[in-house]
Amino acid sequence: MTSLRQHLQRRRLADFFILLLALVVVWQIASWLVGDEIVVSPAETIAQIGVLYRRPTFWGHFDATLLAFAYAASITIVLGLGLGISLGISRAAYDTCEPLLMALASLPKVTLYPVILMFFGVGFSAKVVFGVLHGVVPITLFTMNAVRNMPAIYARVARLHRLSARDRVLHMLIPAVLPEIFSGLRLGLSVTLLGVVLGEMFASTRGLGSMLMGAIGLADFRTVAAVTFMLIVLATLLSSVMLWLDRRLHHGAK
């Protein structure tokens, strides 16, 4: 059993590296075909990351993005789960809010930019709000759908064992819908990061997004490629950590 699991883990790891290698090869071919000035090659991107790491200003931008993301992620999780659970519990609230949230999910958040800037100005708050705006809708939607579709038998078990309202939420509802919540969190936190970076691009002078805009303005495609690559790695790491946590917490339910 253990050896089979180890074999599957090794196979999964091997598949991941094969996919990674294939992506690098495609990237390199695209760079040869289109030109190194537009599609910077993988090797030069990595070299540029090395250059950025040695620049003292880079770490200021990097820390600013991480800090804004930490704030945005915390607010997004609390708000998304709170809204999702409250709206999911009540059928009337679900029926009323679900179409509105779906509409909000498909709305390009950039259209709300002027409003956010008017309220929060240029700086830290605006990019946090922009991140929250991106992440809170998918987390709320996933959570409320999970709560709404929770198997009715769990509610009967809760009534049978006379659980208090608090225990129903903490020990029945949340564990029962946690796999779906984690799917929402994975998606929601990825787009929260996207929202923070977008916020930095247009409403901040600090952070990786702002750095990216500066590089675009100077036609410094190597820095653009390096920062984009770092953001992809950051988002992938975030998603992998969430997946790992999901499996750790829920290995029995799968």
Binding site: I153, Y154, R156, V157, L160, M172, P175, A176, G252, A253
Partner: peptide
Amino acid sequence: GAVFQEDASLPWLN
């Protein structure tokens, strides 16, 4: 006490 027709075991607990 009651036992239901459906599987009422809680999948997140051993």
